[in-house]
Design a protein around this nucleic acid. Structure first.
Lengths: 138, 138
DNA sequence: AAATTTTTTTAGATTAATTCCAATATATTG
DNA sequence: CAATATATTGGAATTAATCTAAAAAAATTT
């Protein structure tokens, strides 16, 4: 993260994804991609945008999140009916899901292994493997 | 599945789960548990009930599915925002999800292995591990 | 088996997440 | 800058799911 050209990288990322770097997409990308990895819901991101003075409609938040996901900048994780998150960490990894609070967190890749996967059925290929470890408070 | 006392087993299963064997629950249990393993959505089961002449409200379908799940007779699998299935196979196994059609199918347990799981974080315990292999048409 | 109590079902209203729509605004191209 | 293509918007619409309170059915007590 540089001080002088704060948007340069983001603009490039959007351009690479064939997405015009509009004010809204840039602002959302900034919230999502500058800083630590995040797990955000659409509603939460919309709220956050407003709180930081960015005026963007909920429809645009949804559009952008899906476009970013399509472009491989985000990954969507569904944990429950009516609850899904967008994860800014798109490298191969899996999740803990705390059922009591709805909190999602990354599993350190080196703490689990998945050495043997089944063949994809005829006419199909694997597009992704999702492992969710559901947790309860003891 | 016997011919003479077709409801005996189902009634017992419900009783064991501390659920009264009402007409509605019995009819749904019959659809779910007599025959092959199934992956059904609430809406689909509701529709199926009506088509087979069982009058049951959607609310009751949801109630029953959740009660059955709570009792360990079913397992709920969420695959996408707005799409979840109830699986009559409650033994330990995982799923293929065909993104194009929304179809869910079981993975043969012997075709995959998960030998190393991470520790549950402090204050938590693992309630379930879900593996979903997402598939695309080639 | 009638009366009473408890549990269940129901239709319809309600909520929450998401998508759709067509008018308006913005970005890109020539 | 004009023309074209694309994006954003608010609000309506849709969908899945839950809630509610009244009616019905099942279980229990008498």
């Amino acid at each position: 993260m540089q001080a002088r050209k704060p948007y340069r990288d983001l603009i490039d990322r959007l351009r690479t994804a064939k997405l015009r770097p509009t004010r809204q997409r840039l602002a959302l990308a900034k919230l999502l991609f500058s800083g630590r990895d995040r797990h955000v819901s659409a509603e939460a991101l919309h709220k956050e945008a407003h709180e930081t003075g960015v005026s963007v409609s909920l429809a645009t938040v949804y559009n952008s999140l899906h476009q970013f996901t399509q472009a491989g900048l985000l990954r969507e994780v569904v944990v429950e009916p009516g609850r899904s998150y967008f994860d800014t960490n798109v490298s191969e990894h899996h999740h803990f899901y705390l059922e009591d609070t709805g909190e999602l967190s990354d599993i350190e890749p080196e703490t689990m292994s998945l050495p043997r996967l089944p063949e994809a059925p005829e006419g199909c290929q694997i597009s992704r493997v999702d492992v969710t470890i559901r947790l309860k408070r003891t």
